[in-house]
Amino acid sequence: MVEKTVPTQQEGQVRQSTETTRSEARYVAPPVDIYEENNRLVVAADLPGAEKDSITVDVKDGVLTLQAASKSHAVGNSMYAEFEFVNYYRQFELSETVDVDKITADYKHGVLQLNLPKAERAKTKKIAVNITP
């Protein structure tokens, strides 16, 4: 699970890319935290400004794709700009141990949290060791 939860954005490894020719939208790969706990893998992505309805998460051929869009709320002339409302796009390769049908997602305060439960066979099992003297 560890090795395979990697971004698929590396050179020559991109399985599908967003169409850039006809769209002026700019894409930013959002920063993510990934951790594993209680037989699930959690992916938390910072998507500040993204509208809830615009977020799409899908899994195809073992690749998790997350996309989101944010609308500009400009009210006047920009005097100083360090960020802009952008679209987000990032892909991760999933290992086969993720139960794809049970993935859930929450969005709160600009953070998208994906819960990826492990498949039954990948769960850790405790094995009791009997030591007989």
Binding site: V32, D33, Y35, E36, E37, A44
Partner: peptide, 11 residues
């Protein structure tokens, strides 16, 4: 404590 962290990119 039982968390196994793979990646921390968020600030």
């Amino acid at each position: 404590k039982d968390r196994n962290v793979h990646r921390v990119e968020c600030r």
